Simulated scan of single mutants.
Amino acid sequence: MIGMQKIRCLLLDDEPIAIRIIERHLTSFPDMEIVGRFQSASPAMSFLREHQVDLIFSDIEMPQINGLQFLKSLKTPPALIFTTAYRNYAVEAFDLDVVDYLVKPISLERMARAINRYYDRQKPTGEQIPGLPLKEEVLNLKVDKKIVRLDLTKLDFFQSFGDYVICRYEGKKLVSRETLSHIIELLPSDRFIRIHRQFIVPLAKIESISGNTVYLNGKDLPVGRSYRNSLKEKMNL
């Protein structure tokens, strides 16, 4: 796991159990720090006037001031993810440029995708925060009921194994109940390629190609027939 600057989070929901569920999910993300918990919008608004917050998780249907009204009331709102039991507010929510719209019950995997979206929206500046890779350098992967944040430059390759995927990372093996099809969607397409139904590799670490074999980091991996042309195109062969 790589070092991270803490992301300050505020939780807003009129149901205490909903706040506890979000809290439990966020324990899987070591870079997320909860700095405020509120059951109504007014005290949350007061808190935001005095404290810096990076990301808000907010319900929509709440007494007095609902989540949409709360967001509209903020002059310079932090990034916001809606967490709601209702789907009918989705269009209006995305018109307000929210990061994501999570419908309860919220799974850990769905939470991970929302947090990935949050990082994707962070614009890299000319000067990088120490210890914080730029957005395209990070992948969230569920390993042993935890979400592990991985530096893409340290990934060696991915291999499918039954219902699981083995991630080779800095000489270690991380096992995730994932699919290669989903993982390739999360990776930058100009830097990673699927070479076989069982393998995804980083283009930069390919040392050589001979026939139907790719060599990288002392490993020789097969190239599937249906993946040969895309590999040649990416490698300008």
Results as ranks from 00 to 15, higher is better:
residue 205 K to M: 11
residue 165 V to Y: 02
residue 17 I to A: 13
residue 160 S to A: 15
residue 51 H to G: 05
residue 23 E to R: 12
residue 161 F to Q: 15
residue 33 E to D: 14
residue 226 S to P: 04
residue 114 A to Q: 04
residue 178 E to A: 10
residue 118 Y to R: 05
residue 13 D to V: 06
residue 46 S to E: 14
residue 37 R to P: 00
residue 232 K to M: 08
residue 23 E to D: 12
residue 137 E to A: 11
residue 16 P to N: 03
residue 139 L to W: 06
residue 24 R to E: 14
residue 124 P to I: 08
residue 108 L to S: 11
residue 164 Y to A: 12
residue 148 V to K: 11
residue 34 I to M: 09
residue 224 G to F: 09
residue 204 A to R: 13
residue 206 I to P: 03
residue 179 T to E: 08
residue 75 K to G: 04
residue 134 L to T: 10
residue 182 H to W: 14
residue 99 V to D: 01
residue 169 Y to A: 02
residue 46 S to G: 08
residue 75 K to F: 08
residue 222 P to L: 13
residue 137 E to S: 11
residue 209 I to L: 13
residue 29 F to N: 03
residue 34 I to C: 06
residue 193 I to L: 13
residue 155 L to Q: 00
residue 175 V to L: 15
residue 220 D to R: 15
residue 101 Y to N: 06
residue 16 P to M: 00
residue 35 V to A: 10
residue 67 G to R: 04
residue 152 L to W: 03
residue 149 R to H: 14
residue 150 L to Y: 03
residue 195 I to H: 00
residue 180 L to D: 06
residue 98 V to W: 01
residue 48 L to F: 09
residue 146 K to P: 01
residue 5 Q to V: 14
residue 150 L to P: 02
residue 65 I to H: 02
residue 161 F to W: 15
residue 58 S to T: 13
residue 192 F to E: 00
residue 51 H to C: 07
residue 218 G to T: 09
residue 167 C to N: 02
residue 48 L to P: 07
residue 209 I to Q: 02
residue 17 I to H: 13
residue 139 L to Q: 07
residue 212 N to I: 02
residue 41 A to N: 09
residue 157 F to N: 00
residue 68 L to P: 10
residue 150 L to S: 03
residue 46 S to P: 00
residue 46 S to R: 10
residue 186 L to R: 13
residue 162 G to T: 05
residue 15 E to L: 12
residue 199 F to P: 00
residue 32 M to A: 07
residue 10 L to A: 04
residue 105 P to S: 06
residue 19 I to F: 03
residue 184 I to P: 01
residue 146 K to Q: 15
residue 8 R to M: 07
residue 128 Q to G: 07
residue 163 D to L: 07
residue 151 D to P: 00
residue 102 L to F: 08
residue 185 E to W: 05
residue 213 T to H: 12
residue 101 Y to I: 05
residue 49 R to S: 08
residue 15 E to C: 09
residue 88 N to D: 14
residue 212 N to Y: 12
residue 41 A to P: 06
residue 156 D to K: 04
residue 70 F to K: 00
residue 199 F to H: 11
residue 226 S to V: 12
residue 201 V to W: 01
residue 234 K to H: 13
residue 138 V to A: 08
residue 39 Q to V: 10
residue 44 A to S: 08
residue 146 K to C: 08
residue 131 G to Q: 10
residue 140 N to W: 11
residue 176 S to M: 04
residue 106 I to Q: 01
residue 26 L to D: 01
residue 214 V to Q: 01
residue 132 L to P: 00
residue 169 Y to H: 05
